[in-house]
Design a protein around this nucleic acid. Structure first.
Lengths: 186, 186
DNA sequence: TGACTTTATGTACTCAGTCCAATAAATAAC
DNA sequence: GTTATTTATTGGACTGAGTACATAAAGTCA
């Protein structure tokens, strides 16, 4: 797009901050790690941290937020939910497993995890509600979808490609949730 | 039980703080209301507020938390999930509709609502996982259940008794989620 | 009256998140 | 080269949630 290389270049990156934070979370626990700690280890200032992330817990959700943004972007053009889901899933590297799933106890994640997860659930719920999902079906479809993703992250990745897991999962949902509208969604 | 009327009696109550907070949330918005404001209106000190609620957002979830506690308590004795759900639902007055559902925009609820909702979702998820729900079915059952409750709160209450809505909803889930274990759950 | 129990309160503290003004580092135009 | 413009970094002051704790207040019981 626009935004060529004008202005002062960035000193750090999402990935660098992610790495620094994850190290510290594993060493000291999530609660025991302050934003100052993360910034210090990444070699930036505290103020700059909030230039990359708008909250401490956002560091845990880089991949998921990226996927959600992709989903929203996709749906602005082609309207089909199933297509958008598949497109985003295919783009997702099979070895990128949200460490929220794999190492939540190791990081001492607790209420903060559930709370920040709530933000993402609400975002996905909004996406579903904005699609052709019937209002009364939104929650069960949301649950079904998250179930498929969670199953992939915990038991299938990185063996199985996310796109394949999703395909199979959506098929199962289609037959299981026999509701009127759901059949044409995916 | 125990705990007769010993010690200094409480000055306030959950309900009183709830009322004060709701007034302020409607007047000034959720974000625009500090814990100090709530305490002042209720005639207690800020420190005492945290004696009744462990966080500001907990004020929004009194009914839900009460129901969740009842559910957990019920399941410690009789193990049947459906029985426990029905028992808690029947106890719930039909005119007590969580105002999170009805007045969330009026209060300017945003990320805080989603985040605190996440805590309750995780709690309910834990309850389901602790029941006989198969691990791979937990999320879809959770979604189905929340969908039924949300539908009741938004479109049926207070016309319909929560217990009845739940019965009908669970029946629908049973036929719709034809999965192996789910049939015997409710 | 005095021991005991529970609640209320003030105070000091940590930390997340916001705001903003000042500075630094790059490019583009002249 | 010098200057204007753009974008990023930084320090510092600030708000407000939540914690910790020591102390006072208000009741019951012996």
């Amino acid at each position: 797009m626009s935004a060529r290389d004008r202005g002062r270049p960035k000193t750090s990156s999402l990935a660098a901050l992610e790495d620094a934070a994850h190290e510290l979370f594993l060493e000291q626990g999530y609660e025991g790690t302050s934003v100052d700690d993360i910034a210090r280890r990444a070699g930036i200032s505290r103020a700059t941290f909030f230039n990359y992330f708008s909250s401490k817990s956002d560091v845990l959700w880089v991949d998921v937020d990226h996927a959600l943004a992709g989903l929203e972007h996709y749906l602005q053009h082609s309207g089909h939910l199933g297509d958008a889901l598949r497109a985003v899933a295919v783009e997702h590297p099979r070895d990128r497993i949200p460490l929220i799933v794999t190492q939540s106890e190791a990081m001492g994640l607790g209420a903060d995890l559930a709370a920040s997860a709530g933000i993402r659930l609400e975002r996905l719920r909004g996406i579903l509600a904005g699609s052709r999902v019937e209002a009364s079906d939104v929650w069960i479809v949301l649950g079904a979808l998250v179930g498929v993703l969670h199953q992939w992250a915990t038991h299938q990745a990185p063996r199985v490609e996310l796109g394949d897991a999703l395909d199979e999962g959506l098929g199962r949902i289609r037959t299981v949730v026999g509701s009127r509208s759901v059949a044409t969604l995916f």
